[in-house]
Design a protein around this nucleic acid. Structure first.
Length: 450
RNA sequence: UCCACGGUAGCUCAACGGUCAGAGCACCUGGCUGUUAACCAGGGGGCUGUGGGUUCGAAUCCCACCCGUGGAGCCA
């Protein structure tokens, strides 16, 4: 690609520059030497490559610079690009000149083992490591793939507000703040309601942005601030919604396999399972899922009023927890969609199944290999009276939802959508164990810095 | 919020209630022409999270607090 901004060569271009003299600018990730032969692991943002400095081939002062340069110093290097099997990545630079731009003293992160706390404390520097570099590239690719797919299928990106007056689902705890003279405002936990409004204007839309949950969650799959893409489409019924979710996830996974081969290898990801992620996925009803849970003996731990706990066979009507989801996904090597959940455990805006009023037209997608729940969606209640009744049943403030009810007053149509968690998806695809590694600066219960 | 575990050198960890709290890595010095977390030799580096208690004696046992970790719940 031609760029008017590129004034120097980059590591990502090395295969095309073999045998040529190049000038690169970047940072020394690490160094080691064998006397008169020195190896510098060099990175410039586009990738990593090895610099080789051999004493007889460079001026004495250049050799001294290479010998004394510290980890994470920024440098400019001139040298010959060589193909060499011994070099990580297959190419290396035979250094002719090396200049220090800024000498680093006491870089905190050694190229050795570190604990989580220490690394999170230094997240601003940790991002430079090869592993974090690869994860962020996959994250970028996932978001790119999502936008490509939705744009190509006629979805218009609509950005939802982050400051909102109303709680979306009325269940989870929200971050609250004072909004001038208008009282309390909340950080959005979902752009869905706004996406619904926009879908009545554009037919097919999606929101993409950060969302916030003030839950005191402490697990490897929760963040207090996370990104979500939420497609919403007029005239889509539940089956269309599931088709869309399936198509989108298939596209994203296959896109990453195609475009991030290097990154996935750097992360040590076994891609054989990902290659299987092709339509059709599995699709089972909640009732069928309950049967699996019971068959596999994933019991329910239920809290008793006296503070104790009882362990019972999983009853129809309860929502699945992590143990149940894990039990279900042991059965499947591809994503599985579970649909038609008990109405009592789902949000007020979900439409009842006309064939069974005990369940709603909702669906969740669970990813295999411990990926967990990556999608939650539903067909929305499009009947004014039914929606108003749900609002009242759940004790939600009608005033704040007047505009939302308007969507059912003026040209209401069947419509559906879902939310796909960006971090959960990246975590699954990269095979990373903890969600905090797949967002640049994670916000968690006990962490807001850096 | 509940449950469990942890906090000792810059980092990762060790040390039965008993001499001066150790090791690896990182850092500094020297050696080596192919290193991949190189290796070899030497060197500096500590308010054992905080406060109280038990004891002749506490990193070690007890209590409280602070900080963190991951599991539940909640969910993407």
């Amino acid at each position: 690609m031609h760029s008017r901004y590129r004034t120097y060569q980059r590591i990502s271009d090395l295969p095309k520059l073999s045998g040529e003299e190049v000038v690169l600018r970047g940072w020394v990730a690490d160094r080691t030497d064998k006397g008169r032969l020195q190896f510098l692991r060099f990175r410039d943002g586009s990738g990593f490559c090895q610099l080789v400095v051999f004493q007889p081939e460079v001026p004495e002062d250049v050799f001294m610079v290479a010998q004394t340069v510290t980890q994470e110093s920024s440098v400019e290097v001139r040298g010959l690009v060589r193909r060499d099997e011994r070099a990580p990545g297959g190419y290396e630079i035979q250094v002719h000149d090396l200049r220090i731009l800024h000498r680093t003293q006491g870089y905190p992160i050694a190229p050795k083992e570190h604990g989580v706390e220490f690394l999170l404390e230094h997240r601003h520097l940790w991002l430079r490591s090869a592993r974090q570099h690869a994860i962020m590239r996959v994250r970028a690719a996932v978001i790119r793939a999502i936008c490509d797919f939705l744009d190509a299928n006629g979805f218009v990106r609509i950005d939802a507000p982050i400051l909102t007056a109303n709680a979306c689902e009325g269940t989870t705890t929200l971050f609250e703040l004072d909004y001038f003279d208008l009282g309390k405002a909340y950080l959005s936990q979902s752009g869905q309601l706004y996406a619904e409004a926009a879908a009545m204007a554009h037919g097919r839309v999606y929101t993409l942005g950060p969302t916030f949950r003030a839950e005191r969650s402490k697990t490897r799959r929760h963040l207090t601030e996370f990104w979500m893409v939420e497609p919403e489409a007029a005239f889509f019924e539940l089956d269309d919604d599931m088709d869309l979710a399936e198509d989108l996830v298939e596209y994203v996974v296959q896109y990453v396999l195609r475009h991030c081969e290097q990154e996935l290898r750097a992360l040590g990801r076994d891609c054989s399972q990902l290659e299987k992620v092709k339509r059709p996925f599995y699709r089972i009803s909640y009732t069928e899922a309950v049967e699996i849970v019971r068959r596999k003996g994933a019991k329910l731990h239920r809290k008793l009023p006296d503070g104790g706990e009882e362990i019972v066979d999983f009853p129809w009507g309860e929502d699945f927890g992590a143990p149940q989801e894990d039990a279900i996904m042991e059965e499947f090597e591809k994503p599985c969609i579970i649909h038609r959940y008990p109405a009592a455990v789902k949000a007020f805006y979900m439409k009842r199944d006309p064939e069974n009023p005990d369940v709603v037209l909702a669906m969740d997608m669970l990813a295999p290999e411990g990926g967990g729940e990556i999608i939650g969606g539903s067909q929305r209640e499009d009947d004014y009276g039914a929606l108003l009744q749900r609002l009242r049943e759940q004790g939600l403030p009608e005033d704040a939802f007047q505009w939302y009810l308007d969507l059912r007053r003026y040209g209401s149509v069947p419509h559906s959508g879902f939310g796909l968690g960006i971090e959960r998806t990246v975590k699954w695809i990269t095979g990373v164990q903890h969600i905090r590694e797949v967002i640049p600066f994670p916000r968690m219960l006990y962490r807001i810095v850096p």
